[in-house]
Every structure is written in structure tokens, then in C-alpha cells.
């Protein structure tokens, strides 16, 4: 379980971006972080994975605080798929890219190999194992970044716009991975601008950019026109259709 308690943060010389933000992501739960551009969604991720240090509050995984720990130590609890992950692939082969995380944990070679094969199989990249990451298509690179995090088998996953620009087939693959991770009891936080994707996959929504960021169940969030206008997001298609029909 991931808990964020009274998080406060401001960039140097700028007003507070977060003031007392709290949220809880239980095991087997997907939280969608939504809001307009510049609302602080990616900043929140960097506070969760330790790339930025909060001024107030703390982040807990499984009831234990990880605030103040090194990024590499937090990496043993929280996995991050960044926005534009294709910019952040660094290994010379797909296999090495996926093996990088498990190798940092000091796992034996046979376990690393098993994890790499499993992660690549789940992301439909097993036949690309020997290729250079930069030779893959955009969708394949995105899934390679996802495979790299899946191979680490962490209790918390952060996905920053993982669905962006994917066609139907790849989107369905992503949704099945999310469902499998949820069933496995992972706490998943995803930043998303695609409200149809949020409606289909998330359990709760943390809306940033409004007066008071708060965690709301998905049906309640999309039914609250005031909050939707406040955080500048549109209703997903089923909700608009329902509104049109009534």
C-alpha cells in the first residue's frame, strides 16, 4: 500500500505547488492522477520516487516511511515508467535494458533471466530480445520501459502517460497488464490525460490543479461537474453519451 501524508512542495522561488496533499493507494488499487498541464502531476511522481524531496509530509510504502531515503533505495519499493520513456532507454540491447533493474538488486543470473523473459513475454517483446532499443517502434519502446519496471516486481508502480499515442491493440495490451498487476495486489498510480482510459481502468482519481486536491472514486469524480471544470478535464464518452440520452 502507498500512502502520501500531508505532502508539501514548492520549486525554488515559486509559490507552493502542493500544500497538505494526502492520498492512499491500497494493494490492488489503481489511482489516476489528473489535471491540467502544469498542475504538478509529474512533480508528484518525482516526489514519490525520490527524485525531488518534499518540504513537508511523507511517503509510506507498506506502512514504512521512505521519505529521506536515497533514490536507489526507494527503487526497491517503487517502479516508475516516465513520460516519454523512449527518451530514457539506455542499454545496448532490449534484454540488457530489462535486466538492468533486477541486476541492481543483486539477483542471481538465472532469476534475472527468468524475470527478463517473463516481463518481455507479458509486453509482447520477447521476439525483440536481441534488438537495440532505439531500433524499436515508438509503442515497443514504451512497452520496453514498462517491461523494465515489471521485471523489478515492485509493490508500487508509477506510470506517467503510459497510454499516450498507443493504438487499440497496444492500449488493450496495456490494460491487460494493468489488470494483471492490480490482481497481483500492486498499488498503481497513473498520470493520464485520456479520461476514457481513466474511466475504464482506475478505481479512484486524484484531481490536481483545483482548490483542494482530493481522492475521489471514479464514478463520483466524473459526475461532479464542478470538480471537472476546476481541474480542466472532460467527461469520458460513456458519461457524455448518458448525459446526451437523458
Amino acid at each position: 500500500m502507498l500512502e502520501v501524508r500531508d505532502l508539501g512542495f514548492a520549486y525554488q522561488g515559486q509559490p507552493l505547488l502542493f500544500d497538505g496533499v494526502s492520498t492512499t493507494v491500497p494493494d490492488g488499487h489503481i489511482l489516476a492522477v489528473v489535471g491540467r498541464n502544469g498542475a504538478g502531476k509529474s512533480t508528484l511522481f518525482k516526489l514519490l520516487n525520490g527524485l525531488l524531496k518534499p518540504e513537508d509530509g511523507e511517503v509510506l510504502v507498506g506502512g514504512k516511511s521512505i521519505s529521506g531515503r536515497k533514490i536507489s533505495e526507494i527503487a526497491a519499493h517503487i517502479g516508475t515508467v516516465f513520460q516519454s520513456p523512449e527518451q530514457q532507454l539506455f542499454a545496448g540491447r532490449v534484454e540488457e535494458e530489462v535486466a538492468f533493474g533486477p541486476r541492481q538488486f543483486g539477483l542471481p543470473a538465472n532469476q534475472i533471466s527468468e524475470r527478463v523473459s517473463d516481463a518481455l513475454n507479458r509486453t509482447s517483446l520477447l521476439d525483440q530480445i536481441a534488438r537495440h532499443p532505439l531500433d524499436l517502434s515508438a509503442a515497443e519502446r514504451r512497452f520496453l520501459a514498462i517491461a523494465s519496471v515489471l521485471a523489478m516486481r515492485l509493490p508500487v508502480l508509477l506510470l506517467d502517460e503510459a497510454q499516450r499515442g498507443l493504438d487499440r491493440v497496444w492500449t488493450e495490451r496495456l490494460e491487460s497488464i494493468l489488470e494483471a498487476e492490480r490482481s497481483a495486489g500492486k498499488s498503481i498510480v497513473m498520470i493520464c490525460h485520456d479520461m476514457d482510459f481513466v474511466e475504464r481502468n482506475a478505481d479512484t482519481v486524484l484531481a490536481l490543479g483545483g482548490r483542494t486536491p482530493r481522492q475521489i472514486p471514479v464514478p463520483a469524480f466524473f459526475s461532479d461537474t464542478e470538480v471537472l471544470a476546476e481541474v480542466s478535464v472532460e467527461r469520458p464518452t460513456p458519461y457524455r453519451l448518458r448525459e446526451f440520452m437523458t
Partner: peptide
């Protein structure tokens, strides 16, 4: 920016730079 992005990705996958 690219160097920072790669470094961030490596650290969040467990690489210790200290």
C-alpha cells in the same frame, strides 16, 4: 536534459550514483 532523464531512469531502477 537527456543526461538528466537517463540518470533519473537509472537511479529509479536502483542504480546508486553515490
Amino acid at each position: 536534459g537527456r543526461a538528466r532523464a537517463i540518470s533519473d531512469a537509472q537511479q529509479t531502477r536502483g542504480l546508486s550514483v553515490d
